[in-house]
Design a protein around this nucleic acid. Structure first.
Length: 286
DNA sequence: CGGTTACCCTGGATGC
DNA sequence: TGCATCCAGGGTAACC
């Protein structure tokens, strides 16, 4: 579920609960979700550590510990999220941060268990892992950098936006919002976008993500919630996702839900009129 | 290298 | 009502 705005909302909610606090114990309820470090080392080595900082890297949550206790990375993937305040222990808890003085628990919950926990002994190792998996953050990438990365591939532009190595943070919901905002068809060839089109695309990314962060993310069904268990409000104000058959906010025509090549089975929402597949004056119209 | 596909999981919604 | 099927915000590995 969580894309950049949802993860950013989680991180903002986690900071006051975790930063400066001592972890009395880490409880890992599903060891198969831990990667790259032995269960025993992960758990025993973190007991007593103090959380120095909580941050975000693309769609990953980064928990930096003080005094050489290393860096915990949590990838929520599809159904992961955190809970701070619940009347009872929430469902599907996979990792618990137990805090002392005063006693408190921060729960990581993940119905489908697709999420992953990583641990790195220091910033160098964490940086190396980030660099291996992710390009620049979608909120920070410059226009020229984006242009160069698009020029490098003949993939369709939507799969390129979803490739975390190109830029980090955009997922299936926000890719559609961004492409609509920039009036680009998701199947346009990345390397064939004109400088003006790349400019529109770049100009759309930050405002769309910022708007979603203000709304505290996008919630539907029993999926993503804030750390307080509240729904994010983005799907009440968005333009595309989940709006098949409803009027396009630009032209009033019906929004189409479809599947496109290059993505496994994920839905794509677009307005065929506002996001034409062929460039208006293109000569290679088929 | 670039691109495609299977697969990891489970719960909720939909269809018969 | 009960059961089968489909669907989902992500990411990796294997393959062509």
């Amino acid at each position: 579920m969580p894309e950049l705005p949802e993860v950013e909302t989680m991180v903002r909610g986690l900071r006051p609960a975790l930063e400066g606090r001592r972890i009395a114990a880490l409880e890992l309820h599903d060891p198969t979700m831990l990667q790259g470090v032995a269960l025993d080392e992960f758990v025993t080595g973190r007991a007593g550590a103090v959380v120095a900082r909580v941050g975000r890297r693309g769609k990953w949550v980064v928990v930096e510990l003080a005094a050489d206790a290393g860096i915990i990375v949590i990838q929520p993937r599809m159904t992961g999220g955190f809970r701070l305040v619940e009347p009872d222990r929430p469902e599907h808890v996979r990792l618990t941060f137990r805090l002392a003085n005063p006693d408190a628990s921060v729960w990581y919950c993940d119905a489908r268990r697709l999420g992953r926990f990583l641990w790195f002994p220091g910033p160098e190792q964490a940086e190396a892992a980030f660099a291996r998996a992710q390009g620049p953050d979608a909120l920070e990438i410059g226009r020229d950098d984006l242009a160069a990365r698009l020029a490098r591939t003949r993939r369709a532009v939507k799969p390129t936006l979803l490739d975390q190595k190109v830029l980090a943070g955009i997922g299936n919901i926000y890719a559609d919002e961004i492409l609509f905002e920039s009036r680009l068809h998701p199947l346009r060839i990345s390397a064939e976008l004109t400088p003006a089109e790349v400019g529109r695309l770049h100009a759309a990314i930050r405002p769309v993500l910022r708007r979603a962060i203000e709304a505290e993310g996008a919630s539907f069904d029993a999926g993503y919630r804030t750390v307080l268990g509240l729904e994010g409000g983005f799907l009440a104000v968005n333009a595309m996702y989940g709006r098949a058959g409803l009027p396009c906010k630009n032209c009033g025509g019906p929004i189409v839900k479809t599947k496109i090549a290059g993505l496994i089975g994920r839905p794509t929402y677009l307005c065929p009129k506002c996001q034409p597949e062929n460039r208006a004056r293109g000569r290679d119209r088929r």
